[in-house]
Design a binder for these strands. Sequence first.
DNA 1: CGACTTTGACCAGCGC
DNA 2: GCGCTGGTCAAAGTCG
Length: 319
Amino acid sequence: MSDHGFRDFYYHGGAFNNIDHDQQSYGGETDHMYRVSSSSIDPSYMSFTDCLHSTSMDYGSLEKAFGLSPSSSEVFSSVEGGNRTMMKQHVGADELGGNTGEVTATLNSSVSSSSSEAGCEEDSDKSKKDGQPKGSDDGGESSKKGNKAKMKGEKKQREPRFAFVTKSEVDQLEDGYRWRKYGQKAVKNSPYPRSYYRCTTQKCTVKKRVERSFQDPSTVITTYEGQHNHPLPTTLRGSAAGLFPPSMLTPSPMGRPSFPHELLMQMPNYHHQMNNQAPGGSMFAENFSPFQQYVHQHQVPDYGLLQDMVPSTFLKHEP
DNA sequence: CGACTTTGACCAGCGC
DNA sequence: GCGCTGGTCAAAGTCG
């Protein structure tokens, strides 16, 4: 596949460490991965969520998101293939160490397409066969061919996508929504298949892909596409509603927490910690992820239950 | 019986 | 034009 004008973000759950750049082939695409340092992020400026909801996500937005400035050391951008905007910043050394709690972000931005980027909303694309408003979930068998015919002449546009790279034994990360698997494909250059899921809520066209990294089989790449147009299902598997505080399950000022990272951004103390991190120090004691911090600070008792619903990225045990 | 998964087939886009 | 690959469909199977 090539660039279709989507925008990907890769969030590797945990504390932000450094922005570092590397390039890797992922799912047939060559993506640029960014490891983002906590010290390089100014959450008071713009959150990841803000960033993702931004309708004009581009290099500038990413700068804002990560609190970067073009004048910062080792910040640069490049354009690849004429329509990709790249950036990099390397702030400080790797003294924070390890891969624990690192954010990996990919910007795969198309400058050409995506006008006002209805991409952030549903209606825009659906140039793809599926999703059609009427076709809805199932039944619309005519949708298969009908949509394909309709596709002709239309430029393919994609929902904004972003992925979470998490260390997890299980492929399916519990995010509070219910998903129906609708396909599975072998991935080129990878022994692990990629699974395709669709949100089971009617008229919600959010999709996600789940695949295990062949480079690091312990990590799972979950790619979300689109935004939920509905609240979290009341009947959550693993009773997430009982574990997360109301503030994490109710719509945020910018909308409801459609994705785990949104939950993350709504976690109490998250911003506080980000802002008050001691220079050079670890943002979260003992390399705990924000969620771990949250769990610890709130002394959530039932770890086993948490494990059921929270990716191990958030619940990694310390020896 | 409904919801969900599995799996082979199909199609479109892309590169050669 | 052809082959490869990603993405999706839908029938059949499975599960609770």
